[in-house]
């Protein structure tokens, strides 16, 4: 009886938390479907009375969101793939290869995570400009193909792996590249999925860099599209939130897929032996 009660209380608590966490997103999506009168009504309406699609049509007319979505997709996918390769290699070295100067190099890398973006953004802007990478996918992606964050995340996951397994493989004469590819990477799938989803979403959400290095609509990303809306002199909540909803929708879908991937990777890693 008491366990039933505690389960009930737990679910109630979780539901209240979920409601609080989801509310701002529900607010955005439901207001996107409201007429200007509805979104200004008092007391405020929680849900639209009907599916009013005018906001979406108006937003699509204001800015070429389809093109922006494609650009963001390409840029985010390239950055994700690149970081998974560079970070897993480096994390393996830090976790399992006893090389000279490891601690010093690790702290050097770690310190790069603390370099605030304002320190690097002006010189990087000048570099990319001098190489003729303005308004190009190269300029949008190549500066972000390695990150200490990813290295650190994977290193921590690697260190939680059973050491005996890696040592045994090494004793059997497996080279580092084989251990990396055959043992560590498959075991690290949940961590790689976590990192992949995270890097993709972060790239998707980048703001200042694409703003600086893109000048034309053909290479602009979706976050800049949203900011272009904000500079318009207006407007109803509905129109702005329709734009926000369009930008959020692909990442919400990715998260639905990515979480599943995450769980599948974890189950595969959990079947030991």
């Amino acid at each position: 009886m008491s366990s039933k009660w505690s389960a009930g209380v737990r679910y109630l608590f979780l539901m209240l938390c979920a409601l609080a966490v989801l509310y701002p997103i529900l607010f955005a999506f439901s207001n996107a479907f409201m007429t200007p009168e509805e979104s200004q009504a008092y007391p405020p309406a929680m849900f639209p009375s009907r599916l009013y699609l005018r906001n979406f049509a108006d937003v699509l007319g204001l800015v070429p969101i389809g093109r922006f979505l494609l650009n963001s997709l390409v840029v985010s996918a390239v950055i994700m793939a690149g970081q998974l390769v560079t970070a897993s290699l480096a994390a393996y070295a830090f976790a399992f290869v006893p090389f000279r100067g490891k601690n010093a190099v690790f702290f050097l890398f770690l310190s790069t995570m603390m370099i605030p973006w304002e320190v690097t953004i002006i010189p990087n802007y000048l570099t990319v400009k001098s190489w003729g990478w303005m308004d190009s996918y190269a300029g949008l992606t190549i500066p972000f193909l390695a990150s200490t964050f990813g290295i650190f995340l994977l290193r921590q996951f690697f260190l939680q792996m059973p050491k005996e397994l890696i040592e045994a493989a090494r004793m059997d004469g497996c080279g580092h590249l084989r251990v990396f590819a055959i043992i560590v990477l498959p075991l690290a799938r949940p961590a790689l999925a976590t990192l992949g989803v995270y890097v993709f979403l972060n790239a998707w959400n980048q703001y200042l860099w694409p703003l600086l290095i893109t000048n034309t609509d053909t290479k602009r990303t979706v976050q800049i599209g949203i900011s272009m809306l904000k500079w318009e002199e207006f407007i109803s909540y509905g129109l702005l939130l329709a734009g926000v909803s369009l930008v959020l929708l692909p990442s919400l879908l990715l998260l639905a897929l990515g979480l599943k991937q995450l769980v599948r990777g974890i189950t595969a890693g959990a079947v030991k032996g």
Binding site: V85, T86, A87, L89, A90, Y92, A93, V97, P98, F99, R100, K102, V105, F109, T112, I115, V119, T120, I121, I122, P123, N124, T127, I142, P143, L145, A146, T148, I151, H176, L177, F180
Partner: peptide, 28 residues
């Protein structure tokens, strides 16, 4: 060989960090 492998695995990161982090830091 471990020393060599360690740095080989770190090479891609060194390259990207060198151009887009350490050089700009020095310039700043």
């Amino acid at each position: 060989r471990d020393n060599f492998t360690g740095y080989l695995f770190l090479l891609p990161c060194f390259a990207f960090f060198g151009v887009f982090l350490f050089y700009p830091l020095a310039k700043s």
